[in-house]
């Protein structure tokens, strides 16, 4: 039997059916007495939908305010993020500039001076600091509002330069 045929036959079941016995005497016995369903004007007023409409309106208003607040907060957060990104960029430029002289000196020494002493310990420490520095830069790029990381980054950079100088001087 196809789906269509099954559904057609099911629709065909929708037929009226009389009870096997007359149910009216039993119903009449149960509804004897005054009509309890008749409501007073006050009861009708209480059952009208306006209180529900008012409640629904209030709920909608509250939800609307919450949504507006959320949008406003999201907008503020975006502005804060943009401002923080600008500050981070400026701070990173300052950090980079402050070590520019040291790096030039190290670079010149590498070309003109004696060959650098390659201590594995110092090399490893430098690599670790360099990795940490890169990671801090990536994190700040993702979340510029984490400005407290700038201090860590500056310290890592400073330490790495110190190690480099120490290795050169050894």
């Amino acid at each position: 039997m196809s789906e269509f045929e099954l559904r057609r036959q099911l629709q065909g079941l929708r037929q009226e059916r009389q009870p096997g016995v007359d149910l009216w005497p039993g119903i009449a016995g149960r509804i004897a007495g005054p009509q309890p369903a008749r409501l007073s004007a006050r009861q009708r007023a209480l059952r009208t939908p306006w209180p529900w409409a008012a409640a629904a309106g209030l709920v909608l208003a509250i939800v609307g305010v919450q949504v507006a607040n959320r949008v406003h907060r999201a907008d503020l957060a975006e502005r804060e993020r943009a401002a923080a990104a600008l500050r981070v960029d400026q701070a990173l430029a300052l950090i980079d500039a402050s070590y520019l002289g040291v790096e030039r000196e190290l670079s010149r020494a590498g070309h003109d001076g004696p060959a650098a002493v390659t201590s594995p310990t110092l090399m490893n420490a430098e690599a670790t600091l360099h990795g940490a520095e890169l990671e801090l830069r990536r994190t700040l790029a993702r979340e510029p509002r984490a400005e407290y990381l700038l201090d860590l980054l500056a310290r890592a950079r400073s330490k790495r330069m110190s190690l480099e100088l120490q290795r050169r001087d050894a």
């Binding site: 009870p19 149910l23 119903i27 149960r30 509804i31 009509q35 369903a37 409501l39």
Partner: peptide
């Protein structure tokens, strides 16, 4: 069915 009609009688005002 009987229950339904009794309920209907009671709720006719609605």
């Amino acid at each position: 069915t009987q229950d339904a009609f009794v309920q209907a009688w009671r709720k006719l005002g609605e």
